[in-house]
Design a protein around this nucleic acid. Sequence first.
DNA 1: ACCTGAACACCGTTCAAGT
DNA 2: ACCTGAACACCGTTCAAGT
Lengths: 206, 206
Amino acid sequence: MPRPRSLTPDQLADAALAVLDRGGLAGLTMRAVGAQLGTSTMGLYRYVADREELEGLVVERVLAGVDVTPPAGGPWQHRVRVLVDRVRAAVGAHPAVVPLLPAHRHRSPGVLRWAEAVLVVLTEAGFAGTRRVVALRALLSYLIGAIQLEHLGPLAGAGTAAMAQLPRDAFPHMAETARDARGVGPDEEFGGGLALLLDGLARQLD
Amino acid sequence: MPRPRSLTPDQLADAALAVLDRGGLAGLTMRAVGAQLGTSTMGLYRYVADREELEGLVVERVLAGVDVTPPAGGPWQHRVRVLVDRVRAAVGAHPAVVPLLPAHRHRSPGVLRWAEAVLVVLTEAGFAGTRRVVALRALLSYLIGAIQLEHLGPLAGAGTAAMAQLPRDAFPHMAETARDARGVGPDEEFGGGLALLLDGLARQLD
DNA sequence: ACCTGAACACCGTTCAAGT
DNA sequence: ACCTGAACACCGTTCAAGT
């Protein structure tokens, strides 16, 4: 990793994110990012060891837009919800980044900053030790899973319409649930699942 | 999609899964699968429209190993937990399939059969309408997210050791939580998060 | 009819050559 | 010293040619 000169890492990340937003994951190539910046393809290797590191830069760029100051007032459930929703909103603005999220979530400073904020709220609420570990893990699991379900071929939306016509004899409950799902929007679905988790957590504090 | 002859789709799926287990996602190429089967690379296109469809076959193969008969007795929480754990175990036997899961989960017969079984249990427990929709979505989100966290660079395990040495001034809660996490195994972590979700669901039935 | 190998249009990355 | 383009070793897939 030699020293950069004419480009800042931020410029690189912006260019890569622009390419990703425009052409999807398949369009994110070293050649395309080079063209976007007006430099040679190989010029990128001055800033980044390989393609994977470039992907990490993009993920970090999206996460950088997340405000990680824990919301000041209100019950801890609300404060966690706000932090979770901020990530969902940031990712929702760049859906093409979703498939990159799981692989680049570890060793991401953005994720660490966010997790620290969540832990501040959980700790103030009274969680500690194993319970706090499990709580953070569960919230992160739900967040990542729900975001992927939402953006990678939805259970709600267009996918549900198709599923409502399932063979009713083989999948009776599934067909009925798919019909019910047509009346449930993505926000309600995401928020409802998160509420279940928060209720489960609240029960532990009794 | 012409008619097959000398190979069954199962043979193809087995071969692709063997290649995936051996060489990871990067090793799963049309050429490698052809070689594994002793046929030409192009021979695969008689069974599969493109690489994506081959990936779908592999996912289906792994999911085919999941017993989807709802467990007979016991409280509904236990029955859901058994169904969830079966998927986790099947995927755990072929960790390389994890990155393929989110993209191929929709229109997967295996997922549908599993979801139908979960819905049978939820319905018998008293869930219906929007609540049932949200419950299924939440369980699936947690399952997919938690599996990915577990297998794609863990919060527990080796990753935690690194995180326990975080700059303590910038991430005080994170450093402490990472130390706590060393005593929490993957089963406890996964099961603990699922228990939170099930507790939240139980609360809705009161 | 079924199957195959050469060929094409891409990748990421190496490396010798430019200034 | 910084940057670049040709070249290499791969991909998935098309298609003309084999039996």
